[in-house]
């Protein structure tokens, strides 16, 4: 089982590197005349140091193991990304239908009848938004 503290430390170090390495390539300058890279570089150094401290900490003390399930987050993200792709290339209504039918896969029970009802309600809401609040989503 992966150790939660260790993963936490590694994640922070990874974030620090993601921001720190590019920041070092920007103009850093000195403290008097700070360049655009100076402040992010400083902050990412601190984040990296905290991450490192957590990695060390995970070696000297017990930590609970990480329980993480990727199924539901994957389904939800797939439904969001599909929504954008369909709304971009087709229209928003098929995108709503896709969002409802895919995202409910993550729920405890699956019912086509209920999904159709949710779709109907959301389509009505979308029309109400576009006529009353001026939502610009391409519906039809």
């Amino acid at each position: 089982m992966p150790n939660r503290l260790l993963i936490r430390g590694f994640l922070l170090i990874a974030i620090a590197l993601c921001f720190g390495v590019p920041a070092a390539t920007y103009h850093v300058g000195d403290f008097f005349h700070a360049g655009p890279g100076l402040f992010p570089l400083l902050v990412s150094c601190v984040v990296g140091a905290i991450g490192l401290a957590m990695v060390v900490q995970s070696r000297i003390e017990q930590s609970e193991s990480l329980a993480i399930g990727f199924k539901n987050i994957a389904i939800v993200l797939a439904s969001l990304i599909g929504f954008v792709v369909i709304a971009d290339h087709l229209k928003a209504i098929p995108a709503i239908v896709y969002l409802v039918f895919v995202s409910t896969l993550a729920g405890t029970d699956y019912s086509v009848r209920r999904n159709l009802m949710i779709c109907a309600v959301l389509v009505v809401i979308a029309f109400a938004f576009s006529s009353l609040l001026g939502l610009n989503l391409p519906l039809i």
């Binding site: 929504f83 709503i96 995202s103 209920r114 959301l122 979308a126 939502l135």
Partner: peptide
């Protein structure tokens, strides 16, 4: 039911 609520919340997040 939550199964009906969360797709709607996702839709509102998108909007």
């Amino acid at each position: 039911p939550y199964a009906a609520l969360f797709p709607s919340i996702l839709f509102f997040c998108c909007v």
